[in-house]
Amino acid sequence: MSDYYDDKLQRSGDSMRIVAWCIGAIVFIAVLACLHGCRSQKIIERTDTHDSASYERTESIVYVPVTVTVEIPAQTAERETRDSTSHLETMFAQSDASIHWVDGVPYLHHSLANKPQQLQKTEMVPVKHVRLRYFRTICRTKYVYKHIEKQLSLYQRAVLNIGPWIILSLIIYIIYLRSRLRRQG
């Protein structure tokens, strides 16, 4: 008779092990589902910047003082007339006049001579300035990884709130079953 009970007890112990393994697998799958469903999403954000090339042209006229040098050539001229004597002198020339007697007739001898020199004068000369500024632009693509926290569904919030208690109770139940099987075995 004890064989009968030993057989029955052994079969019930095997079935208890199967139940414990099934519960363990269910708990493992539930933990994986919780961890997967609650993670934040990761997206890639692409930013394109397009640049171009252009130029700016600026024209301006600036008056610059320039010193101009003019050379005055040396010149001489003479003339005789019947008149009085004189002497004239300026910056550029000098003149002498004198009376000469030729055959008892008085003649005025007049000489005019330019002084050899250079004349300097300042003139305002227009100068045209053209300024070109070039602008070059570049095309760039930038990728940024962003984490977006998603809104949890009602089921996910329930799993997060109640799930740890269910897992804890299953662990306690499995420990209880193993201790019971050890006492019986």
Rank of each mutant, 00 (worst) to 15 (best):
S12N: 08
G13S: 12
S15P: 00
R17E: 07
I18V: 14
I18S: 09
V19G: 05
V19K: 08
A20E: 05
W21Y: 04
C22K: 08
C22H: 03
I23L: 13
G24K: 09
G24Y: 03
A25W: 00
A25I: 05
I26E: 07
I26V: 14
V27G: 03
F28H: 07
F28K: 10
F28A: 15
F28Q: 10
I29T: 12
A30L: 05
V31F: 02
V31A: 11
V31G: 06
C34I: 08
L35R: 13
H36A: 15
H36F: 07
C38W: 01
S40P: 13
S40Q: 11
K42Q: 14
I43W: 00
I44F: 01
I44P: 01
I44S: 11
I44G: 07
I44A: 13
I44K: 10
E45A: 12
E45Y: 02
E45N: 10
E45W: 00
R46C: 03
R46T: 15
T47D: 10
T47L: 05
T47I: 13
T47Q: 11
T47R: 11
T47E: 14
D48T: 11
D48R: 04
T49K: 02
H50Q: 10
H50P: 02
H50C: 05
H50F: 04
D51A: 08
D51Y: 02
A53D: 11
A53N: 14
A53E: 08
S54E: 06
S54M: 02
Y55R: 08
Y55S: 12
Y55L: 04
R57Q: 12
T58N: 08
T58Q: 10
E59G: 07
S60G: 11
S60V: 08
S60I: 06
I61W: 01
I61R: 06
V62G: 01
Y63H: 09
Y63V: 07
